[in-house]
Design a binder for these strands. Sequence first.
RNA 1: GGCCUCGUGGCGCAACUGAAUAGCGCAUCAGAUUUCGGCUCUGAGGGUUGGGGGUUUGAAUCCCUUCGAGGUCACCA
Length: 594
Amino acid sequence: MGLLENLEKTTIQIVKKIFDVQLETVDISLTRKDQNGDYTIMVFPMLRHIKGNPATIGHQIGEELKKQSDLISEIEVIKGFLNITLSNAAFLSDFNTILANDHYGKTPLNKDLPGTMVEFSSPNTNKPLHLGHIRNIVLGYSTAQIIEATGKEVTKTQIINDRGIHICKSMLAWIKYGNEATPESTGLKGDKLVGDYYVKFDQEYKKEIAALIREGIPEEDAKKKAPSIIEAQEMLRKWEQGDAETVQLWKMMNGWVYAGFDTTYRSLGVDFDSLYYESDTYLLGKDVIAHGMNTGVFYKKDDGSVWIDLTDDGLDEKIVLRSDGTAVYMTQDIGTAVQRVRDHDIDSMVYTVGNEQDYHFKVLFLILQKLGYEWADNLYHLSYGMIELPSGKMKSREGTVVDADDMIQEMIDTAREIAEEQGKLDGMSVDEKEELYKMIGLGALKYFMLKIDPKKSMVFDPKESVDFQGNTGPFIQYAHARIQSILRKADFNQNQLNCAEDLPLIEKDSTVIKLLQQYPETVASAARNYSPALVANYLFDLVKEFNSFYQNVPKIVEEQNEDLKHFRLLLCYKTARVIKSGCGLLGIQVPDQM
RNA sequence: GGCCUCGUGGCGCAACUGAAUAGCGCAUCAGAUUUCGGCUCUGAGGGUUGGGGGUUUGAAUCCCUUCGAGGUCACCA
């Protein structure tokens, strides 16, 4: 049992004894730095159950705590804050418990718990991934890792939007202007190649519209009558009828795109456990709608379209089936959700999708609840804001969209530039260096995106993100590398995982231990709140505290007191382990040397 | 117009369920160290948490109102 649990339990017992009141929980937090003490027990919340003066109550509890437990060396009560100072023995004993846990902060996979599914990325197959996808992917992947660390089995998935008019546009342009171009023949990444034809289509389409407008046709009509768009629609019809030639071309081009996406995913270091293709799911959901009609959740209008009335919930009416009986986006998402629960042993789902779809998911979740699925209460829309560069907004119309691969490459290049300027890696081989630049560049990118609350729109500044100072990925990676170097220098033997319990601690020692104690709770909290930012900011605090510790105890390696030296090395060791583990949850690699 | 989200020192961000004097990083300034204005450390300045009201022993956090930014209101996905 950890120190904090112990403290909470004891406090509850004491309150029961003195006041005959059964508390559910006790609010314990770190004591402010400018106050005496390590932990603070909040008395204010107890006032709801216990009548009296908060200071007096605090004193009564504090004195009794001190009497009962030899872990507490001092207490001090200020207003409703009971500050307690722990003894060195308490810290050291707890630190030993932390050390003994090899997978500290991670709950082993519990197969008895129902799993959860996290969806992210979910691209269209007509253009390459861009900067916005990176935020999506990094967020979704990290959230999946964090949930997994709490013992739940997580299935990472994406729904690939592989059908529709946009795909036909690329296909059509390829036929017309492609000259049999393939990724092999052009040397282009598959998704780029297909994306280029999508752009090409759009250019030609615009020319046609312009020509029609010159002939005096109104713009609205011109958009519908341009030969290109009519051809594209015709192609979509053929595809839906299963025309062999069209389907074959569609498969080939999508294959190129998938290969291209895989390359991007690999360089981001992410993977998926399951894939859903819209071409398989776009007809799903109609049976669910039919069932919902019977139970009165949906109703049919005169023209045959099916709707749900959500005005009682403060929303609008929403269509769920077209008048011709075909599925809309919502139908499909309903069907896919049901399908996923059938396919996997899960009781909850997380959708990583941009905040422009907030309304859609609100409606989707509400519909699923009304349909009576018990898992519908456990759905979460991990919504995130726009991302832009210091140079301004990304607009696909103006061609200012930042390509994901280009961005990744730029990060690696910047990392290389900075590292070479500092010239700290001179002993390494070329391959080792390249590996390191990749780690740093990607670490910078991911950390910068994850440390910020997803809801907020953000400006991504590549230069600021690779700074080795401040709240950045490289700063944290660097701390890890430095600790490894200390351990190497000291010839630290990690098999001796135990420290004596009667050492003289300085304040910095116990501060680091306190932060280490908080790690599991931070992970749990991050999972509850779907918030990688909590983990990121925790790591930054830990590293800052560690640095300060390291400055104040500069010569660990030369320490004469063998026990103390061993203890401080253990502190370094465990801190490094926690950094590595936390970075793992963020999908960030940490180097042993840099 | 309706609904949703956001608004915190010059800039970028924290504060999980309301709690002590609202934290941190950049940047700025001053010292220390360094044969480097560049690396590191210590410290300082900088805020009525957009404005106004309310609930509470206690509000950045909850409620109302107002201003500002963004998003969204398709038989598109």
